[in-house]
Design a protein around this nucleic acid. Sequence first.
DNA 1: GGCTTAAATGTAAGCGCTTACACCAAAATA
DNA 2: TATTTTGGTGTAAGCGCTTACATTTAAGCC
Lengths: 335, 335
Amino acid sequence: MATIYEVSKLAGVSLATVSRVINDSSAVRKTTKDKVERAMKQLNYKPNSVAKSLASNRSDCIGVLVSELKSPFFTRMMGAIDAECRQFEKHIVVTASENDPLHEKEGIEFLIGRNCDALILHVESLSDEYLIELSQGKVPIVILNRQIPQISDHCISLNNELGGYLATKAVIEHGHRNIVYISGPEHKKDAIQRLAGHRRALMEAGIGIDQTRIFTGDYLQTGGQEGFKHFHDSGIQFSAVVCGNDEMATGVMATARECGLSLPEDLSVMGFDNVVFSRYTFPRLSTVDNPITDMGKMAARIIMEDVYKKSMGSINKSFEPSLVIRESVSRITKD
Amino acid sequence: MATIYEVSKLAGVSLATVSRVINDSSAVRKTTKDKVERAMKQLNYKPNSVAKSLASNRSDCIGVLVSELKSPFFTRMMGAIDAECRQFEKHIVVTASENDPLHEKEGIEFLIGRNCDALILHVESLSDEYLIELSQGKVPIVILNRQIPQISDHCISLNNELGGYLATKAVIEHGHRNIVYISGPEHKKDAIQRLAGHRRALMEAGIGIDQTRIFTGDYLQTGGQEGFKHFHDSGIQFSAVVCGNDEMATGVMATARECGLSLPEDLSVMGFDNVVFSRYTFPRLSTVDNPITDMGKMAARIIMEDVYKKSMGSINKSFEPSLVIRESVSRITKD
DNA sequence: GGCTTAAATGTAAGCGCTTACACCAAAATA
DNA sequence: TATTTTGGTGTAAGCGCTTACATTTAAGCC
């Protein structure tokens, strides 16, 4: 591979001049520039980004840490971030924490060690304190899907409470009053917030809150299965089940059918997130759209502005979910 | 951030010695090693991987080029590669080509420019010639999901023909004889191969091949919709539709229902790939499992062996798909 | 044409690390 | 005891680039 030195020799200029035309960092006479460009082409010169990164202390790379690589949720997020970065010739380097707090820390250190110019983090286990400290370090960070008051400037988050509220409200508006709820794990903040929204909707409709109508699942399909079985076996009457996320909703659907119910006539199901496959279920899942791609995009934008001084459109750090009504919630007139 | 120089000063040894304990590249006396390690800990020293990479011409990074970041198919692949690399403290740097031939080339150049030690490529548009030339370059490559005879050593591929055969054969064995096929785009090799397998199964069962029973779709949900409508409108009798992939199969399901069919009684549907959501459809989609995670894993392994000289288990470059029978294909006795 | 000023280019010192080579002491051999 | 080997360590030259600073060249002005 040709180096900048060879280019400079061929073009008959100094290293510095070549570097200048590559980065057009300062004025270079047109004729000189042409010479250099010709030489570059002739040698098929490609700048060595590692050397560049070492010398300039700038990598044009944005580190992205996600919980897992194989989930469609994160994929959409990454895709959005990558698309945005690409426009400015920045690149992402991704690492996965596999939902493990140790890995999360390692991942962050890896990305910093890789000289990333900024970090976009989706972390669940790491403490607020750690993140606050991190945000005061050298590398700018943006935290996705989490709200830490002390550093809210660095956080992009979704109003999960509102989402939970909208979901349940929609179900109520379809005539349901006997509603059960399958929540995500208690240690997940979004799960707690979604449940809070659910409660608010019930209260507002004058439906009392009954702890026995809430089941705590694992955000996976199994959680939906277990939740449905739990309610089914307990003899509780219910015409609708609202779920903390779409995975659990599909679990409910499958298990309800196994128990002989036909959907959506006998049971309405509501999800949350609007993941890709929610369109593929039958009946198609009504859910709450989680604008994760918009949020990812925004994270990238913030970095473009703050780190690379590229001015973009307006900045918004707080996102609102919206309802997606499909067929899995049926209208009933009498409970 | 502390540098190796500061560590060496604090530990009272030379740069070289510190480097040696970091990489344990040559013998260092135990006591010296301890001193250095203590110094590293005290300074919270983290090696600067960019500098390391520049000096050693080795990045411990494996470049991965995928067609798109947002597809669950590639996500699974990436996840598998990453998991394998992680075991050996290697990392992946991913870039997406967005299904664009120009981007594919750019992506490869980017990864090479990033000093990747090896490349794992999933490319569709780039010519065989280009890849053959590339494989003769300095950077080792592994090509996923494509078979190029001249460099088959670098290729990991799936027997798509067999998959197509198994899919149709299973449908036939369920008693169907009036079968239509919705293929992927004609310029995609896997689509052609899958279709060839379909034909073989038909022939073998003594069912003639009828071009009017083959529709060329786009591998997306819309392809399934269009395909079903096409056959439905044309008045062709069919009890089963075999699809080139799962996305199209879901399109068929949705559209068939819109036309008043009930599934799987009135129509059997067969997919291909066994993507995540195929478990979530109703009826659950029968399909052909595409062992993309195994293939990704194997790609990583090959690199571990060839590039990093880590000996792994056995190497296999040719994968076979297997049937996944769920409920979307029903048994019929009479057509 | 001589002067000032600005524009264009060159020089060279790093960035933080690896590694070939040199060196030295201690152990092994004769 | 002299000599070779070896294990342990240091020295210093890069890796390919950026960039502050110095220097040269061209332009502008009276």
